[in-house]
Design a binder for these strands. Structure first.
Lengths: 205, 205
DNA sequence: AAACATAATGAACAGTGTTCATAAAATCAA
DNA sequence: TTGATTTTATGAACACTGTTCATTATGTTT
């Protein structure tokens, strides 16, 4: 049936319109200022309409969080042409860090906020697909590093987590304004130097 | 004047009562559920009274955040009898991690939430006293480690930040429920193993 | 006892996410 | 085309939040 098909498409379009408005406001103003009413106003629909297409605010945030992972995942995949695993590991970290610093709100949503995980739990999807895929990219690279003689005496799983945590921690402190406040130094250069320090330790055979 | 003195003391007591109730509710239910009304109810005062003693919710959260640092700082100071700097560094990290896992809400407030930093900024105190003091404990220990031949080729400041970030990152991912969701493993053992992995790398001369 | 100062109150305001009976629009059936 | 039916959009209303402030109650001083 042609009409049903078209209607389904229109529904998808309006849903995407809502998500786009949410994304824009979210990136600009952050989560606090991104209210359902402001989203509705942005696309010139009523408040109720948003709730026709999204049952929750958390569902919107979850979709946004997925978009973020799609982007980061794409940037990760583009790095798999780097054959030297340690080089790739360093590049993965750099991309991750750049993504965090350039999309602070989005990064926050993906790795710090409760909402997306709450949504995932509430919908019985006890697999965090996006997170797993991203973590897999790291794990595979770490495994290859080990095959090349790096990280002797370490275990793949905890080591991968430790590496993820290390880079995430610096980004997280950056985003929450703890870096300058605690060190008294300018955040951006310090982040770079700290990252070099980390990689120096990681790449010691 | 004796009466004035007593009244001042009473004021302090009521303020402490409010903070205590806030702390209790906060540790139990988290920040979302800790409303001004629930605090007032807990101590059997009216909503308005809370605002007599605290101008803001952020001021309450800032005081709470300070209490957290007082506790963590105390536990840190107790470690300065450990003379071997690398041993002390490892112990600092363990204490930090234990604090995070046992006081998730408080840790979150101290290192992840916006409110306390917003309050500090709003009050022109562009020094994060608590954070600085805590970071100093780490920096001093790292410096001593370097004096003992560790961390060759590293710079004190970025390295200290990298170490802080590393441990913080793992704790942060734990608290925000990303660990099990991304790795599929039980968080607590994984955290311990990952910490060992980190320290193994840090302590390579 | 009266005048004054301090402290506690809770109704009211503006904002939030969310719901749902109603209205409008689109589709289908004749 | 016209009427019936289904689908979509609406915004007032609800329960909650942080916050304010005129009013009330309490305590102190003269």
């Amino acid at each position: 049936m042609g009409t049903a098909e078209r209607k389904a498409k229109e529904k998808e379009e309006l849903k995407a319109l809502i998500l786009g408005a949410a994304k824009k406001l979210f990136a600009e103003k952050g989560i606090e200022e991104t209210t359902i009413r402001s989203i509705a106003k942005e696309i010139e629909y009523s408040v109720g309409t948003v709730y026709v297409y999204y049952k929750d605010k958390t569902e919107i945030l979850h979709d946004l969080h997925q978009q973020g992972f799609a982007q980061l995942g794409g940037e990760f995949r583009a790095l798999f042409h780097v054959s030297d695993p340690m080089e790739r590991l360093k590049a993965l970290g750099r991309i991750y860090m750049r993504f965090a610093l350039e999309n602070t709100q989005m990064y926050d949503l993906m790795f710090n906020m409760k909402a997306p995980m709450d949504f995932i739990k509430a919908n019985e999807e006890h697999h965090w697909k996006e997170g797993n895929a991203t973590f897999d990219a790291l794990r595979k690279t770490v495994q290859e590093c080990m095959d090349h003689g790096y990280f002797k005496g370490h275990q793949l799983e905890p080591l991968s987590f430790a590496i993820w945590g290390s880079v995430h921690g610096m980004c997280s402190l950056y985003i929450r304004d703890r870096v300058k406040a605690a060190t008294g130094q300018e955040p951006d250069p310090l982040m770079n130097e700290a990252y070099e320090d980390l990689m120096l330790m990681f790449s010691k055979k």
